[in-house]
Design a protein around this nucleic acid. Structure first.
Lengths: 266, 266
DNA sequence: TGCAATAAATTGCTATTTCAGTATATTTCA
DNA sequence: TGAAATATACTGAAATAGCAATTTATTGCA
């Protein structure tokens, strides 16, 4: 059992830094557009500059942060165009996932998916759409994600799973921070799963495509409703992301000067 | 104009290291399974350990190299299963690409694709299938890749392009090193492009799916033909990759001991 | 008061050094 | 002769220190 000094340190420092920073971003602890100083992070996470930089590099490659060469790094503020691009990718990956599931899943796996879909639809019926308990909303969204991931796992294609998961991450982040009012339509998943569990891959593909597209429409509508700037639909507010981001680039020297000075004194 | 000391250095050292090493792998200068010592690479490329390590990290994330924590890094030897997984991803991305092209491409872009397809089919007719000039084979493969990339570019979805390009890289490498005998069937692309340039997205999707699957069958057949181990088709040789790789892990202390000693003397 | 030039501070980037883990080569003992 | 133990060399990971580029704050001048 690990002692108190260094409890449970699996993987390298870079890996731990990556996971820690990633979770803080996803949970909103680091807000959209917030500046991320590598030095301050190194002091906070009690490690050196190099593993932090490596973690940042990975996060940048995944699109969660953006960095300008000698200026700074910040949590990326996705534009509506980013969201649309993500959904194009998601549609590509998940229709393939649905197709392969339909072709190759075992009967036990098909039955498992039916149960998951029923449970998810039951959860979203209890979702009033008003100001629900954030933990409840979080649990529904998590279960929603794991349902889609389970479909992908049943295809037996590991890289496909990884791509789907990576691609979903930013979308979920956006969802939480900007369009928290979004709610899953009731009875959204059981018809989908019925087609995936059938024996027509083309029908499974088409059903998943419709499912993903409808989800994107819902979210874009929720965003438009909250942040105005033109009617709903696909032509959402283009300027939102950059407006927020530009304002946030400026506030650099604000947080934790004490940590910086403390680390310098060593 | 840059002086002779440091000529034309765009991007960071990490970026340059990434591009240089990546190209050497793709061109076969670093063979499949070859050990890549970060220290020797640093000496060869005349830079330090850190940017090399960052480049290696990116290459590992993309699947071009694999690294064991305190053992070493080598060029990844893809297994037939890797190849199949790549083609699953490729099918997902390129059917989406075809669908979007069919929906959104301008008439000028459709005409451009027709010209490219005609030229590519013409090139592959001149391909005898025997021992052709390697430069010619390279140029055909490059043009083939750029045709598919051009389709993706016309969709206007940047991330889709990036994913397709990243996904193709390893497949191309495999193609060159292990299945060089593969040749494009004549008249392979013009019928495809005709459907992409039509007005039925579903037909474009289906045509691209058929195209990609047929390409995978061809390559797997070419591999089976060269490396035996059972009949052709999908059940190719599972053991090939690891057999080659395991043998190559062992030969570590072989190359460029002079460089290592020279760098130590500084 | 307004604007340009300068100074200070912070950033990401790179080099160098040190550390810790693994594999190979050598030695030692039965 | 063979197997176990040791020694050596090499590996990637991490810490530290310093550099170069950029932005912000300050100052000087009109």
């Amino acid at each position: 059992m690990p002692l108190s000094t260094r409890p449970a340190a699996p993987g390298s420092l870079s890996d731990r830094a990556y996971v820690l920073i990633r979770n803080k971003i996803l949970r909103g602890e680091f807000a959209l557009g917030a500046p991320l100083s590598r030095r301050n992070l190194a002091a906070e996470l009690e490690m050196s500059f190099v593993p932090i930089s490596e973690a940042m590099q990975r996060l940048e490659a995944e699109g969660l942060v953006e960095s300008r060469p000698r200026v700074g790094t910040r949590v990326r503020v996705p534009t509506p165009q980013d969201l649309r691009d993500r959904y194009i990718i998601r549609e590509a990956l998940e229709t393939q996932s649905a197709r392969l599931f339909c072709e190759k899943a075992s009967s036990a796996e098909r039955e498992e998916m039916r149960r998951m879909a029923a449970r998810l639809d039951e959860m979203s019926e209890r979702w009033t759409g008003g100001e629900d308990d954030p933990d409840f909303v979080f649990s529904v969204q998590s279960f929603h994600l794991s349902l889609h991931m389970r479909i992908a796992e049943c295809t037996g294609c590991g890289p496909l799973c990884e791509l789907i998961e990576k691609n979903q991450v930013l979308a979920i982040n956006w969802l939480y921070d900007m369009a928290a009012g979004y709610q899953l339509p009731p009875g959204f998943h059981q018809p989908l799963i019925e087609l995936l569990a059938g024996n027509d891959p083309d029908a499974a593909d088409a059903a998943m495509r419709k499912h993903v597209r409808s989800g994107m429409q819902e979210i874009l509508a929720a965003i438009s409703e909250r942040y105005g700037a033109g009617g709903g639909g696909l032509q959402g507010p283009e300027v939102l992301g950059e407006a927020v981001g530009a304002a946030l680039w400026r506030s650099r020297y604000r947080r934790s000067a004490d940590i910086a000075s403390r680390s310098r004194r060593r």
